[in-house]
């Protein structure tokens, strides 16, 4: 087994382990921290695929920004471990059924998928680099890219509208 493959197995093991720990942890803060670890290992996978830009952006956006907001909310909610038992058996059964269905669907889809034949000799290793990614985005996929950015702008304007200070006295 060459070093890339063994490294891939090590990373995959870490990814699955930390993803399982996200679900298993009793403490929500621990879950969030394990989720951050999962994002890191996913970035490791991107680097193995030579997609360095994607790896960096995954860290910046998910681990650096979104998970910080998750942590914010969970820290302020101050959830204690003992009121976790308040879930009824019905909720648990429903959750199990839903989760199991999603698993079956994913597994079925995975089994039916045929991976396109792939030739390592002709593969362009530079395809994940930022230069080729930028060319692809701004030449071939310019319209979808701009539409996505307009969508994001609209979402941002909406968020600003929701978070706007209400008329009346200030509370700080």
């Amino acid at each position: 087994m060459n070093s890339t493959v063994s490294f891939f197995y090590f990373l995959s093991f870490l990814t699955v382990l930390s993803a399982v720990m996200v679900v298993v942890s009793r403490n929500p803060i621990h879950s969030v921290l394990y989720l951050i670890l999962t994002f890191f290992t996913l970035s490791g996978h991107y680097i193995l695929l030579n997609a360095q830009f994607l790896a960096a952006v995954n860290i910046i956006v998910y681990a650096g920004a979104i998970m910080v907001l998750f942590l914010f909310v969970i820290m302020f909610l101050n959830m204690k471990q003992d009121n976790e038992e308040s879930k009824t058996n019905l909720t648990k059964i429903a959750a199990t059924i839903v989760g199991g269905t999603v698993f079956v669907i994913l597994f079925g889809a995975y089994r039916k998928t045929a991976i396109a034949p792939f030739n390592p000799e002709q593969y362009d290793s530079q395809v994940g680099m930022i230069e080729s990614l930028g060319k692809l985005l701004f030449r071939d996929y310019l319209l979808p890219f701009e539409l996505a950015s307009i969508l994001l702008l609209v979402a941002m304007v909406g968020a600003v509208m929701l978070g706007k200070r209400e008329i009346g006295e200030r509370h700080f």
């Binding site: 951050i36 360095q52 960096a56 910046i60 681990a63 650096g64 920004a65 942590l71 930022i130």
Partner: peptide, 25 residues
Amino acid sequence: ESNIGILYVFGVVALGVYGIMVGGW
């Protein structure tokens, strides 16, 4: 020498928050 050097720095800076938040909590 990485071709995403500045993004790497930016990502690490973004992670700097965690030390403070985890410790404070």
